[in-house]
Design a protein around this nucleic acid. Structure first.
Lengths: 209, 209
DNA sequence: GTTTAAATTAAACAAGTGTTTAATTTTGCA
DNA sequence: TGCAAAATTAAACACTTGTTTAATTTAAAC
């Protein structure tokens, strides 16, 4: 069976792996954990993916392959620069929200470790994202809507970092903001948190001293 | 030996543990790894801390105990609101920079895991931090310098999240911004990144529509 | 229905895990 | 110097880890 081709069983394993990796980390999750949750034999992971390490690689590829496309589509839409930025933020928040687990895995299993193949794919993804952001912001600068003394590569850290930090401290904010149900938490992200990020980036981009 | 009392050997173990936990994660680091790096016998960790889990608890306490104090001191300083916010950002960046490893451990080993004792200590720390931030910003609002339609609890995620995301993608930004040495990287954080965060928060706080 | 490849299984493998034990060495104090 | 407490050690403990093996079942093609 090909490395890329994904049948139902492979996908099922990947979904379970994402869930467990994000909950307990890569090292903290055993193949037996995955097998149990996915209701398959322990040998099937090696059979399908070769090793636990290659399972992680497959997972990263599987979960990041279409983000690039989504951003490139945004570029070609006919929108005002600020609207584009707001939509960009929505895409980021939405995506990380949907793929809850994988971003935690990406950032924490690829940091300071020798997973060259996975790391390279992740780096390429980030480069592509940055190009899209640059393009959008330069459009706004050319139109005289955005100020020019901003460091564009630091915009993404502010967008994703704010969301990520909020998400990583989920239980703290659940208690603080009295978000009792999963639905309330997700609604807060979709409305208030997204708005806060949009407000922040807008202030940063159009502020005049 | 008391739980709290820290002799040289205990501290040596904690320092090594922080380094390895931050590099390889809690589960990814074995007691034998720690022993080897700290040049002690494997039994010494259990002897001093009781267990690997309790070692983590001790580490978190050891590394967070004085941040609270630092923030409370800032409150009483005689500074303009905006200056206080800028200094707050400097304190955060500086602290996380100095304690490189522990924040990664805090956010990723306490997320979705049942480490109640450690989690509680961390939550208390965050509550205290939030109180300091609230107090500073309300001061600025009372003086009419800061706008009032902002969500204060989301300020910290933006500050720490931006820095954290930058740090978690270190190798990406090293390549992108051509930061060849450790010194250049640290200087970029101290100057450009800190300035970006300060610029962002300032824009958010004083922007008038 | 037979055949061939793919899928699935239980069992075993060696290596690594956190922790405990019991013996030995070092230390500090009378 | 002598002695009790603390520190340190090597060895063993039971358990979990990722991976492989070889046998069996299922599926598809002819």
């Amino acid at each position: 069976m090909s490395d890329i081709e994904l049948n139902d069983k492979k996908i099922q394993i990947l979904e379970v792996a994402e869930k467990l990796f994000s909950e307990k980390g890569f090292e903290g999750t055993s193949i037996r954990d995955i097998s149990k949750e996915a209701k398959i034999n322990i040998a099937m992971v090696s059979y399908y993916f070769g090793s636990k390490e290659r399972l992680l690689e497959a997972l990263i590829f599987y979960k990041t392959v279409d983000l690039k496309l989504q951003l490139e589509n945004l570029l070609n839409e006919n929108l005002e620069p600020l609207e584009k930025v707001n939509k960009l933020i929505e895409i980021y928040v939405n995506r990380i929200c949907l793929n809850k687990g994988i971003y935690r895995v990406l950032h924490f299993e690829l940091y300071n470790k020798k997973r060259e193949k996975s790391l390279k794919a992740f780096t390429e993804l980030k480069k592509g994202n940055l190009k899209s952001v640059e393009s959008i912001i330069k459009q706004g600068q050319d139109q005289g809507v955005f100020r020019k003394d901003i460091t564009i590569p630091l915009i993404t850290p502010t967008i994703i970092g704010t969301f990520f930090h909020f998400h990583m401290n989920r239980s703290f904010f659940e208690e603080l903001l009295d978000l009792k149900t999963e639905e309330m938490f997700n609604n807060y992200i979709k409305n208030d948190l997204t708005k806060h990020i949009q407000q922040t980036i807008k202030a940063l981009l159009v502020y005049e001293n």
